[in-house]
Amino acid sequence: MITLEDVSKRYFTKSALHNISLDIPKGGITGLVGENGSGKSTILKVLSGLINPSRGSVYIDKTPVTRRIASKVAYLSELDAFYRFYTVQNMVDFQASQFDDFNKNKAEDMLSFMKLDPKSKIKSLSKGNRGRLKIVLTLSREAPVILMDEPLSGLDPMVRESIVKSLISFIDIEEQTVLITTHEVNEMESIFDRVIAIKNGEILGIAHTEDIREKEGLRVVDWMTKHYNS
């Protein structure tokens, strides 16, 4: 479903991705883990068509990725991209106007699950509620591919938990292919089907989370550390 073939990305002189090849099958939740600057966000941006790779090919569902891939890919950015004068409902309506696959009923369900008031102004929302709103806007799209860049970053434990639960509730795990970057590995490993460890723009390893426990007796964090130090 998600394919990278020999992908490299350079920012001027700095190499961000180095000959990455990757094939993620349809369905399930994949965690992309690694230290700051390892290339996690760059992979998501390449997959969402926001940046072009310097070399190599990128495909989503066998289609070469360009900016137009946005119709198949729901991308949650690490940054907030809201009009501050909008209300929550305005923002939902705006998102619905941009994407054909946006399901307004699902958005409504998610807003109440997240206890977000549609009438609230974006500028009056707490950081936690802005984080929740981003999740609503992304997951209300019935896109075949969902990419989430650090959905838990900078949020308090209660918000993080509500987001983790919303991912389980609102992702269609058989139909949607989800790729999530995170530093909160311990909190998210129980929802990952598989993890990909990345370091300095290269893939260190790919494994099923349950295999890491069953065969190696490790948590994902320990598995990652093992690969980082070897």
Binding site: G28, E161, V164, K165, I168, S169, I173, S190, D193
Partner: peptide
């Protein structure tokens, strides 16, 4: 299965297993 997945915060595939 889905409700159990949500309650225990685990992947629905795990709960199904």
């Amino acid at each position: 299965v889905r409700d159990a997945a949500i309650e225990f915060s685990v992947n629905p595939n795990t709960a199904s297993r």
